[in-house]
Design a binder for these strands. Structure first.
Lengths: 215, 215
DNA sequence: GTACACTGACTGTCCAGTCAGTCATTTTGC
DNA sequence: GCAAAATGACTGACTGGACAGTCAGTGTAC
């Protein structure tokens, strides 16, 4: 009885994969807490509790609260952009379908997942972490906009699109996704909108504008 | 000499207008500090120093740090929406020109002023102040979207617009303004874009899409 | 028996909010 | 007129609590 008194203790995470798994547990917990309270108000005691470890353990995986935040953000960016970069060069697909594919990807791989929350957290804290803002800009924004511009330019070159606004300002094409992101976290609770239908409407508008025919 | 030793002391602010002026000084200082550090990291000592008063004085104008933040946000919203609501009902102006007027107003009265920073601050902190998010939604978002929807519906009713997407999702029309707001504060520093040209391009796209002709 | 992942009580710092005190100005008493 | 007393806006040193980061100690695996 006395031997079993104190609950089973996890085996020490020796192997690299066990270490990575535990780090991920900590990052997941940190995301929850940071989302709920914001960076400054988040307590590492709470992060530790949610991850099921003691506070000291956090410092075996991450050297400071700020580093924890940065690790969290870095773990959530980059992957999807690479995935898209591979799919885009296909020249058999019309620019329209490429844009549609991109939006589908956005919806299912970002807006519909935990990554959405990471992006939101980043947007909220970025002005206090200029270095992180720069990383995100370089690794995600620049590359994402390049893809969009590439699609738009090809559309123009083939005569599929008659307008070059998206090639000049690819930001315009993803702006509604940003609205969707923020609306979801701020207002959806008391004024729900159908995000999917909104993005669909945006695509329709965009196609009408780019192709220059009446529907 | 000994009499003049200590600098002139402000005369006590007795009248209501003097009190309001000092409150405004404090709110301005608070906006600077909150923008720089975020709500949680902002120190009231710094706010007081920037406003040129002692910390205790803040508490003669505002009961708590949170109340200071709320007063700051409330002081910056509402005004412009009312101004627009008065201008819109004019039926002599085409829907297109109404939209253009709205965007001009956005650029000059919000994106080009201190209000932009208040909105940014609000967006960043809103998830930690749900009540404030609700006030902002009710006082600004709902009313702003109503105006947009109204313009879009009139455009459709007159046959000026052939698409109803903006009437269904007025958010789509202002999405680029949100991008402009965030880009300015996060990335403009190392990747400047021409906000005005971007909003102009958005209007062109929107018009092409709504009117359904080639340019 | 030792190496090492893990623990959690502890420490030093930071800051929101307080309040006894200061000092122009106004009012009262003569 | 003028001194003394009252007023109240303003001050800033102080307090109490909170929390990031530490480290001596514990238990487990091998």
């Amino acid at each position: 009885m006395s031997v079993r008194q104190r609950a089973k203790r996890r085996a020490p995470a020796r192997s690299e994969s066990e270490r990575q798994a535990k780090l991920q547990t900590i990052l997941d917990a940190a995301l929850d807490i940071f989302l709920e309270k914001g960076f400054a108000d988040a307590r590492l005691d709470d992060v530790a509790a949610r991850a099921g470890v003691a506070k000291g353990t956090l410092y075996l995986y991450v050297p400071s609260k700020q580093a924890l935040f940065e690790a969290l953000v870095r773990s959530g960016i980059g992957g999807p952009v690479r995935a898209i970069e591979q799919k885009v060069p296909d020249p058999d697909i019309s620019a329209e379908d490429q844009l549609r594919g991109l939006f589908l990807f956005l919806r299912t791989e970002i807006l519909g997942t935990r990554r959405r929350d990471i992006v939101r957290l980043l947007l909220m804290e970025a002005s206090r972490f200029p270095e992180l803002a720069e990383v995100y800009h370089r690794e995600v924004i620049v590359r994402g906009l390049r893809i969009l511009r590439c699609i738009a330019e090809r559309g123009v070159a083939r005569g599929e699109f008659r307008s070059d606004e998206i090639a000049r300002f690819p930001q315009l094409a993803i702006a509604p996704a940003l609205v969707a992101l923020l609306w979801t976290s701020l207002f959806q609770r008391f004024d729900p909108i159908d995000i999917e239908a909104m993005l669909e409407a945006h695509l329709m508008l965009l196609m009408k504008a780019l192709k220059g025919h009446p529907s």
